[in-house]
């Protein structure tokens, strides 16, 4: 089974995967990358210490084969001033 590496970027922080994991297909590795990105995003994004999480999937030669990015965007909007009462 081919080995894949899952490097993680959280904002400016980079966490390389030294060991890698075996999956029987790229599709299976992609599902794992997507699941990991969603889980890490759920923990980290609401804290505000990063606004996006990227999992970079690399093949056994450490070549990048896909990336998954989870982004949180928060938009504050100024409400319209209330109309004057008549």
């Amino acid at each position: 089974m081919p080995r894949f590496y899952f490097d993680i970027r959280e904002g400016t922080r980079f966490v390389p995967d030294e060991e890698g994991l075996e999956f029987d297909s790229l599709d299976a590795a992609e599902r794992e990358a997507a699941r990991a990105a969603a889980e890490i995003g759920r923990d980290r994004l609401p804290k505000g210490d990063a606004r996006d999480i990227t999992v970079e999937l690399k093949n056994e030669h450490r070549q990048r084969v896909l990336t998954v990015t989870i982004t949180m965007e928060i938009h504050r909007v100024d409400p319209e001033p209330e109309p004057p009462r008549t």
Partner: peptide
């Protein structure tokens, strides 16, 4: 209840 990749990340 976590993916293996996330467990690896947490242990690091």
């Amino acid at each position: 209840g976590l993916s293996t990749v996330h467990v690896n990340r947490v242990l690091q």
